[in-house]
Simulated scan of single mutants.
Amino acid sequence: MDRKQMEDRWPVLGRHERAAEWLLVWVDLGRAPRTIDAYARGLAEYLQMCEQDGVDPVTATRAHIAAYVRELTSRPSRHGANVVSLDSAAGLANATLQQRLVPVRLFYDFLMEEGLRASNPVGRGRYTPGRRFGGQQRALVPRLSKLPWIPTEQQWLDVLAVAAREPVRNRVMLALAYDAGLRREELCSLRTDDLDPAHRTLRVRAETTKNRRERVVPYSAATSVVLSGYLAHRATISRARGPLFLSESRRNHAQPLTLWTWSKVVRRIAIAAGVQRFSTHTMRHLCLTDLGRV
C-alpha cells in the first residue's frame, strides 16, 4: 500500500501529515496487510473525532482520549433490542475497544520518538502500590478476559454429522484444525512440504503464526487416513508442490484456497448444523480445552 492508496481509502489520514507518516513506517516494516488495515481504520476513526471537536491530535491530552473512549462506549449497540447482558446494550465490546486504542497509543509513541510530545496520553497502564505481587495494573480501559465459547458435546456431534457430508478437502481441513489447534491463517497457509506423514506431524511456519514462532504439531491416525485420501484427490487437481489446500472452483481452479473461502465453508457447516456460533477459531479453542481435560 502506498500513500495515495491509503489516502484514497481513508481521506482523513491525508489531512494529518504525521498520521500518514506513522502508518507508512509500518508499511515499510512489512507488517501484514490486515494489520495495516486495522491500524489505519482505528486511527482514522480517532482523527475524525479530533476534527469534529476541533482538537489537534498532536497536542491532544488525556482528557481528549477519555472523551474518545466515552464516545466508543456510548454508541448504540448493533444488537438493538436483543440485549442479553448489562454490557451489551450500548458501546463496543471490550476487545474491540482495546483494538481501537492500540493504533492511537502507537501513534503517540511515534510522536514521542520524534520529539513532538513528552508523554503518551493513552499510556499502557500503571501499577497501584500496596497490592499483592507488586501491585495491580490499571489501564485506560480495563481488559476483560472472558472464557472462549466452545460447543457442547451434542453441538459438536451435529457439526461432525454435517462435516461428514463435505468434500474430502473440507473434512481434512476441519480435522487438522482440531488435531493441531490451528488458526485460520496457519491452516490455509500449509504447504505440501510442511507434512511429515511418516511421523504424523506438520510444521507450522513462523511467518504464518501470530507470535512468529515456528512449531511442529502432531495429528491423529484417523486424520492421517483422511489426509491420504485428500492427497490422492489433490493430485487430480495439481501435481505441483506448494500450497496444500487448493480451490476447485472454475474461477480459481488449482489456486491456493483463501482465508475467506474457508470462512464461508465453516459458516455454511455451522448454519446447516444449527450451531450459529461455530467458527474457524472454534476448533482451536476446542482442541486446547480437550487437551486441558486430559
Rank of each mutant, 00 (worst) to 15 (best):
S238D: 08
T280F: 03
G130N: 04
W262V: 05
V104W: 03
V216W: 05
L72Y: 10
L29W: 09
A272E: 13
A175C: 04
L259D: 09
R284F: 04
D56P: 04
R105I: 03
K146E: 03
D196L: 05
F278H: 03
F245E: 04
G54H: 08
S279R: 14
L246W: 06
G91F: 07
V265I: 14
A44P: 14
T73R: 15
E248P: 02
S74N: 12
A38L: 01
A40M: 03
L259M: 06
W26H: 15
L160I: 00
V141I: 04
P33N: 11
D109S: 11
I237Y: 02
S247Y: 12
T35F: 05
A19F: 04
D53S: 14
L43H: 14
V141F: 02
A95M: 06
D158M: 11
Q255Y: 05
A118F: 00
T282H: 10
V172M: 05
T96Q: 07
S74L: 09
R293A: 11
A235C: 01
R62H: 11
E166I: 01
Q52K: 13
C50A: 10
G135K: 14
F133S: 08
V265S: 08
A60W: 11
S119E: 13
T128R: 15
A118C: 00
A163L: 13
R284G: 10
R171G: 03
V266T: 09
I36E: 13
L288D: 01
H199Y: 10
E185C: 13
T96D: 07
N170C: 03
T208D: 12
